Simulated assay, not measured.
Amino acid sequence: MDYGQFRAEYDPVFDILDAEKLPPWLPGAVTRLKELAATIDDPPARRSAENDIASLEDVLAEGSDGPPISPAMMEAIRIHSEAGANHGTPAERIARAEAGMAAIGGIAEAAPPTEQASILDLNESLYMLILALEPDRR
């Protein structure tokens, strides 16, 4: 399996998180995604898939502890997941992370003030990724 095939299976499961009530089969779907991720041959792509699953699990855990996650936060998490993907050249990855940071910033700007800081916190790991990938930092 490659990362694109994994995302074809992952995206519909992630989209379910927007539902008012989560379906009872969701934990089984997460387990299945973990099994699929383990079959990805390319190590960086496998790590991306594992990171996607960790994001999914974070959203599930966060949603179960309190109020449902807002649509703005869900969209920011989705963008963060895509922006931090491990595929592509360093320049492509930097460009994707920078675009993700800009998009997350726009989402935070439009979000209620009580949610803005939480959304912007997602940009920290993308910034660290950019620093790690910049050629003059090696």
Results as ranks from 00 to 15, higher is better:
116 Q>I: 04
62 E>S: 04
113 P>Q: 11
59 V>F: 02
26 L>Q: 04
52 D>L: 08
12 P>M: 14
30 V>N: 04
43 P>Y: 04
78 R>Y: 07
130 I>V: 14
1 M>S: 08
41 D>N: 13
10 Y>I: 01
10 Y>V: 00
97 A>N: 12
27 P>H: 07
76 A>D: 09
115 E>S: 03
39 T>G: 06
112 P>T: 15
12 P>C: 15
123 N>P: 01
118 S>Y: 08
104 I>G: 04
70 S>F: 00
83 A>W: 08
96 R>F: 12
83 A>V: 01
103 A>M: 15
35 E>Y: 12
136 D>K: 05
129 L>G: 02
106 G>H: 15
64 S>K: 02
123 N>Y: 11
40 I>M: 07
95 A>S: 13
58 D>E: 10
73 M>I: 01
40 I>P: 00
73 M>T: 02
93 R>A: 01
85 A>H: 10
21 K>P: 01
117 A>F: 04
136 D>T: 06
17 L>W: 02
56 L>Q: 00
26 L>P: 05
48 S>R: 04
45 A>G: 09
71 P>V: 06
16 I>N: 09
55 S>N: 15
86 N>V: 03
92 E>A: 12
34 K>S: 10
94 I>L: 09
100 G>S: 13
23 P>D: 13
50 E>C: 02
76 A>M: 08
41 D>P: 02
132 A>L: 13
67 P>Q: 08
29 A>G: 08
121 D>F: 09
27 P>D: 06
14 F>K: 00
108 A>I: 01
130 I>W: 10
42 D>P: 01
48 S>H: 07
98 E>H: 10
81 S>L: 03
29 A>I: 03
91 A>V: 03
70 S>N: 03
106 G>W: 15
52 D>Y: 07
11 D>T: 11
93 R>Q: 07
25 W>A: 14
60 L>Q: 04
93 R>H: 02
138 R>C: 10
3 Y>A: 01
138 R>H: 13
4 G>I: 08
96 R>D: 15
25 W>F: 15
134 E>S: 14
67 P>K: 01
117 A>S: 03
60 L>M: 08
85 A>I: 01
2 D>E: 09
30 V>Q: 03
122 L>Y: 04
120 L>M: 12
42 D>L: 04
86 N>Q: 09
29 A>H: 07
23 P>K: 04
93 R>D: 02
71 P>I: 02
138 R>F: 11
119 I>V: 13
27 P>A: 09
109 E>M: 10
117 A>P: 00
4 G>E: 11
25 W>N: 15
126 L>H: 06
67 P>S: 06
2 D>P: 00
108 A>P: 00
134 E>D: 15
81 S>E: 11
20 E>F: 11
19 A>K: 06
105 G>Q: 07
22 L>P: 02
130 I>A: 12
75 E>K: 06
35 E>H: 13
2 D>I: 00
102 A>W: 12
50 E>A: 14
